[in-house]
Design a protein around this nucleic acid. Structure first.
Lengths: 338, 338
DNA sequence: CCGCGTTAGTTAATCGATTAACCATCGGAA
DNA sequence: TTCCGATGGTTAATCGATTAACTAACGCGG
């Protein structure tokens, strides 16, 4: 009662393995008669035949596996959604994901690429957990690849990143729509792509509305709750405090909530807050719920796989840089200014 | 400039592919001379030879890949640590993880097992995201497997689950050590293994200390923040409220914090709180930091892979059921009762 | 000097598919 | 009648390793 091979199916159907192979895969054009094909299929179903993809892969050089290289799969809560999006899109096309976590070590990345290539994966997804500009390791050679939440400086590789500008405009529109003009921005000093775009977009909007933004910006060291708390204390203790804050991310917003509570400011009555990331255990769980621009990790994962599959079909296709929209998750942290 | 094959290495070293294979893999006992072996190795290094594991897998029936089937990789924040633990242990042994997420659909699980077996994975990790008792699908056949955060009723498969009893005793000891006797328990109505053990252990401890626990238990529908809030309101509004609460999990504890704030109870001055899970974005970020029993997901992931590798070496090894300790993450939510 | 064990290789089979190249039969057009 | 193009297959090569079975040369004891 060993696992049936193609030869067993062929014997049961009374044909050669070549015929069986063509019948099951619908290859070989007109060579296989309809009746024969049905007979082979029936035999395969009867025996519970499942092709050995290792053998197939050796011959065809395609393994129906995609390598996913992430720089920190576990420690960031976003990773899950990104992996899931990639996983689902891959699965729908009959592919499986082979995962490697490099814990952010660039040397690891080269090793990871080699380990995946040894296994003859059909393509590679290179993911970073925060929107970044990176260089694709040379070792990747001619293996098809797509960047996820990252892009190259020269646009030589297909990539998908969040539309940070659009997302920022979205949440700022919530505030201006409610009547706010003096909108503070609380950001981090960390030098990441996301920070730069969110900051620039905020500046641009305030300038467009003729608001002096110089004293409305507070920058703290890290993008964490505690830093957010301290930054908010600095921003909100002033007499001419803003009526609304746009936070770099949800964790910092969490700190702003605490600061507001300590200062006796009610949200959204005394202070409206919007933020970025729409992070699972934070934005919806805060009280009141935090309006935040959602990072579309699931959709980016899906897009990346579909783009990779496209490049598998047509290796010479021109690389595409995609901006994925960041929809506003509207909750109750915004109201008209008093 | 195509990828070098073993035959290229062999030619460069002036030997047969058989010799080259044996030299590189240190197989074949004494048949390969030291000098020849070094020559082959040098040639391989020179050419940058990397074995084609697909071809190797076809012959040896081992692919150096482990299947990881999870029932909800993305939506639970624990998954990441579990995957990471498994990933790291696998990587150390030269294995890679092939991931499939079933989104909790049992029919998917069968499909997932088949998809992995087609690819000749060496073994399977079956993970659930909450400690459960499950049945191993028959389709797994003789493929070596280990259960992660789950176990079978009959102990027929190796498995690793958190030591819920030990973890509960640990956080309760924090409370009794500080002098608390009337310790409330806030739990969920969901029927999961973890709930039952945590509840039973809490009862047992209170009984051992001669405390009447009948009016100290509050059960709510779900294990979410809002339910925790409502449950806490019920428990804490009473005159003879407990001086400390043991929450089923951190999300519920988050609700308790909010309730305490509304009722004007300071933590830990008026109310000490301990909990379970030590969830990343919650326990350390709450103010004051929440003392919580940590679910050792990373370590469970590691253990499962090591156990799987052991079973690969010795398929007849007796299955092992392992309880992984849940260390107490001690923070500042506990103080002596007033 | 014969036979045998050791040492150090080689040759060829094998894993389980896919696919290029080849072949037989039949009906109809030239 | 003969040749040709479909139609419907089969045979055998191939993918790139591993490994069982075989072999050649050598040294040594009896």
């Amino acid at each position: 009662m060993t696992k049936p091979r193609l030869a067993d199916v062929a014997r049961a159907a009374g044909v050669s393995t070549a015929t069986a192979s063509m019948a099951l895969n619908d290859t070989g054009g007109t060579r296989i008669g309809a009746e024969t094909r049905d007979r082979v299929r029936a035999a395969a179903a009867e025996l519970g035949y499942r092709p050995n993809t290792v053998a197939r892969g050796l011959r065809t050089r395609r393994t129906q596996m995609i390598g996913f290289i992430g720089d920190d799969v576990a420690t960031t809560p976003f990773a899950g959604q990104m992996i899931r999006g990639a996983h689902d899109a891959a699965r729908e096309a009959g592919f499986l994901l082979l995962m490697i976590d490099t814990s952010g070590d660039p040397a690891e990345t080269g090793e990871a690429i080699a380990a995946l290539q040894e296994r003859q994966i059909d393509g590679i997804l290179l993911a970073t957990m925060y929107h970044q500009v990176i260089e694709v390791p040379k070792g990747i050679g001619s293996t098809p690849h797509v960047l996820l939440d990252a892009r190259t400086a020269d646009g030589s590789a297909s990539s998908v990143v969040p539309d940070e500008r659009g997302g920022t405009l979205g949440v700022l529109a919530e505030l201006t729509g409610a009547g706010h003009t003096r909108i503070g921005h609380l950001t981090t000093a960390e030098d990441v792509e996301a920070r730069a775009i969110r900051l620039a977009t905020w500046r641009e909007r305030l300038e467009a509305n003729g608001i002096d933004h110089r004293d409305l910006l507070v920058e703290v060291e890290h993008a964490l709750t505690l830093d957010g708390y301290e930054g908010a204390m600095r921003m909100l203790r002033k007499e001419d405090r803003p009526t609304a804050v746009f936070c770099y991310n949800d964790r910092m917003a969490m700190g702003v909530y605490r600061a507001a509570a300590e200062l006796g400011l009610s949200i959204p009555g005394d202070l409206s807050i919007v933020s970025y990331d729409d992070q699972e255990l934070i934005a919806p769980e805060l009280f009141p719920g935090l309006t935040s621009a959602a990072l579309p990790h699931y959709e980016m994962g899906r897009w990346a796989v579909r783009e990779l599959l496209r490049r598998l079909d047509d290796p010479d296709a021109a690389p595409v840089q995609h901006l994925m929209p960041c929809p506003t998750a509207r909750r109750t942290s915004v109201a008209a200014p008093r």
